[in-house]
């Protein structure tokens, strides 16, 4: 049953990306594009989960979509999860530790401060990478 999905989903993604890219192109300089402060560098040698222009414009909708899928349907593939954004986009402060969302150096804050949006995500979500489960079963097979 996964086989069928396996074939169609990249195709569907491709179509969706093209459609969305076109739509995005048609919108005159919307969110993100005109805001290009010094965005902190992400982890080297990797690319974002989607092309950068797409990310700039659509990360809020992606996150919202993912949020509803995870909350309500328990779909937890990591790719688009908010938790994973931090894996690549965490920024180190002067003290060598990762900065939290309190700092204006935090990846998610650099543009938002300029764009004057203030999403509340990090009042609940951890804003630094990590996340080993605290309670680990000693006998993995139990």
């Amino acid at each position: 049953m996964t086989g069928k999905r396996g074939i169609t989903s990249p195709l569907r993604t491709a179509i969706a990306v093209v459609v969305l890219a076109l739509a995005a192109g048609a919108t005159p300089a919307a969110a993100g594009d005109d805001i290009a402060p010094d965005v902190p560098e992400a982890r080297k040698g990797e690319h974002c989960v989607k092309p950068v222009p797409y990310m700039r414009r659509n990360h809020m909708d992606m996150l919202k979509h993912k949020r509803d899928k995870t909350m309500h349907k328990g779909q937890r593939k990591k790719k688009y999860s908010l938790k994973r954004c931090m894996d690549c986009h965490a920024v180190k402060g002067d003290d060598g530790d990762f900065v939290t969302a309190k700092s204006d150096k935090h990846f998610c804050n650099v543009c938002h401060d300029t764009a004057a949006v203030n999403p509340d995500c990090f009042s609940c979500h951890a804003s630094t990478p990590g996340g080993e489960l605290k309670v680990q079963s000693k006998e993995a097979s139990r």
């Binding site: 938790k83 931090m86 509340d120 009042s123 609940c124 979500h125 951890a126 630094t128 990478p129 990590g130 996340g131 489960l133 605290k134």
Partner: peptide, 16 residues
């Protein structure tokens, strides 16, 4: 009250 240092897999926050 406001919560800090949440576990990354378990977001929690004030007022909910």
């Amino acid at each position: 009250e406001a919560i800090h240092d949440q576990e990354p897999y378990m977001p929690r926050g004030k007022g909910t």
